[in-house]
């Protein structure tokens, strides 16, 4: 495994894995829709970090351009998602996801 200034690529893989799994844990554990949303951002960032690491170690800058696009999509997603959250709050007077079960059988 090649190293760059003493840090193997494996370390970045494990770090991103850990961040991604913390994001998954947050989505499963919490009930507040805003916190779940932030955990989704955390997962996106774990993937971004891994992509930058790969692009650095393989000497290909396409990975960094992809990260750029992921950031753009994440910004758009947050704007629409928070608007939906405000709508939900206006109708249900809560941001608790357990209350929003009207489609459940």
């Amino acid at each position: 495994m090649q190293t760059l200034s003493g840090i193997p690529l494996n370390y970045y893989i494990y770090l991103s894995t850990a961040l991604f799994c913390i994001g998954v844990l947050g989505v499963m554990v919490r009930r507040n829709a805003i916190i779940m949303f932030m955990c989704i951002e955390l997962m996106l960032n774990a993937v971004n970090l891994l992509m930058v690491a790969f692009s650095r170690y393989l000497g290909d800058s396409s990975g960094q351009v992809f990260v750029f696009f992921i950031m753009a999509v994440a910004a758009a997603e947050v704007a629409v998602g928070l608007a939906i959250l405000i709508m939900i709050y206006r109708n249900a007077k809560t941001s608790d996801t357990e209350v929003l079960n009207e489609l459940k059988l």
């Binding site: 994001g23 844990l25 955390l42």
Partner: peptide
């Protein structure tokens, strides 16, 4: 990692 855990 610590602050990510604190987020949750």
């Amino acid at each position: 990692l610590i602050s990510a855990l604190n987020v949750v």
